[in-house]
Design a protein around this nucleic acid. Sequence first.
DNA 1: GCAAGTTGCACAATCGATAGTGCACGTGGA
DNA 2: TCCACGTGCACTATCGATTGTGCAACTTGC
Lengths: 339, 339
Amino acid sequence: MATNTKQTIYDIAEKAGVSASTVGSALNGTWKSRRISEATVERIQEIAKKLNYSVNLQARALRNAKSGLVGMVLPQHDNRFFSSVGQCFSNETRGREALPVIVSARRERDQELDAVRGLIDASVDALMLVGTSHPNDLSDLCLRANIPHVFVDQPCDYAPSVVSENRAGAKALTKVLLKEYPDVDPSSIYFLGGDAGLPATGQRIVGFKDALSEKGFEATDAQIVACGYQRRAAMDALQRVYEDRGSLPLVLVINSIGCFEGVLEFLVQLPSKVVDACGIGAFDYDPFGGLLRHPVPMMRQRAEEMVKRAYEHLDNKDTRPQITYIQPELILPKYGYRF
Amino acid sequence: MATNTKQTIYDIAEKAGVSASTVGSALNGTWKSRRISEATVERIQEIAKKLNYSVNLQARALRNAKSGLVGMVLPQHDNRFFSSVGQCFSNETRGREALPVIVSARRERDQELDAVRGLIDASVDALMLVGTSHPNDLSDLCLRANIPHVFVDQPCDYAPSVVSENRAGAKALTKVLLKEYPDVDPSSIYFLGGDAGLPATGQRIVGFKDALSEKGFEATDAQIVACGYQRRAAMDALQRVYEDRGSLPLVLVINSIGCFEGVLEFLVQLPSKVVDACGIGAFDYDPFGGLLRHPVPMMRQRAEEMVKRAYEHLDNKDTRPQITYIQPELILPKYGYRF
DNA sequence: GCAAGTTGCACAATCGATAGTGCACGTGGA
DNA sequence: TCCACGTGCACTATCGATTGTGCAACTTGC
């Protein structure tokens, strides 16, 4: 019954006394159009089950020029936003009878290129590129290999992209904080985190500035600290600001979850009074952020929505460059008691 | 130069005026043993680059009976522990020149079986099964298909498994809490979360009881609330305890991150005094947990270590059933100020 | 100058599934 | 009785890369 070597349609054909092509079409569903009798099909299916048969997808893929794999490249798995993206991608992909291949590339150009090349070698049927630092280079590879692809979170000039409404989101988030601290000294309002060279961060900075200028403020370069996405970098950057100013910013807009953690890690070392005076908001969401004693409004990017929209482009074979904007969700602190 | 259809070794062979087999071995590195001259190899490589050639992995896989894919099944991506596991797996797999295929299955039997079947169809070279609810059934499928596999987080009777030292870990965590609250009424000490039918939770419950009995306490069934892993379930379960007792537990050991979130979500609705009196510990780690005003000791499972050990079994072709225990790390609250 | 060995490559089979084509047999109508 | 069709399946090429085998053309040694 149970065999330890993978059975093929030829093995089944022999047992059933029919040809391999008959077995093939009996098992892959094309038997009606090939006029195989139902009795034969049932007999074959029974034998297949008994022999514990399962198709060899690479053989099928080789013949059909379709691998049944869909690839994703993202900066990292262990991040609340990207892991949500990964989860949605996994669900959507499985729902399409395909297998998700997710590779992380740390936002580094070489790793991203390497990942995409690897996925192209595997003949993925489509590719979703999330938060990549060099979208155009990646798109170039995909175009050469003729692979449908979409970008998520960071837009690309040559392919469809789905991104959050970063500018409007950052503006709204900043405004919430400014309303809480209406008389704050303009020079003590900071934006921290991210890579100013990337569109997502760039747009958020613009949104941040929008909110300030609505109040007649103008941000200097010193107030925009795009220190990257690493927790540690955010910690250090905030420390430097603290030392330079001799005090904390009074309003702090944090870009990305990793930086949020880093900021908290730094603040936690200070006396409570100092920290309590500081208004903090985060672009990106962590449920724990809502449980802190310190009320922290957060902008949650709708990962599920973004992945679904991205998949729509792939499903529709829509390859034109265009940007779809998804509105992020403002999560306001809602509880009286906090941890 | 750049073409939009994938080039094959035959295309290159034609341009180079050599045979396809020569091209093949020139490009896959076997040219020395096949005595192809270096000059020819270089010429071929140049043409390959110009034509933007990349191997067709399914053709190679079909011929070599080796797909270059390694599969992982886990309950979910969007969970701090599992996403760390996924991240490590992705790194380790890429380091072995293979592609990671990660499928989530929500700890449900049918989804797990389905996922494994899908991965077997894809001829994964190996399989890592993380936190699965029905290990033996899955192992059975893998054995039939002759696929090397390892279990992580939940042990299996038929294959190598790498798990945390759940019993000792839970005991240590519980002892930390009991030391903080030495005179607590024994009946107000609770364990909450997880599935008592699964070994991981089972062992943690045993460890919890170990700690109690060292103090001469004995836990009743009512104090062990294995409500599953869902955030929402943990919230509801705690609420029920609260209503039944008319008060919170005084010491609460929480099993799994999801439940941790659920518990906090419930507690946050109560007056601060009520919550402050409750000693909370979590088996599983979230960095935000260390930033809460409420000091929360946590047991961090060493995802990286676990994945590495699991991969060692695969690398060594070690298929005997055996359990490797990895000690989790106790993270004590370390800051004076908290959010 | 000739056998023995080496160098450099071509040929063809193979992996497993799919799909176009063809062929034997059976049925129905005129 | 004969032709036209339909039914049920077998044969075979094909996808692209790998690998065992074979065979010229050269080189070496004596």
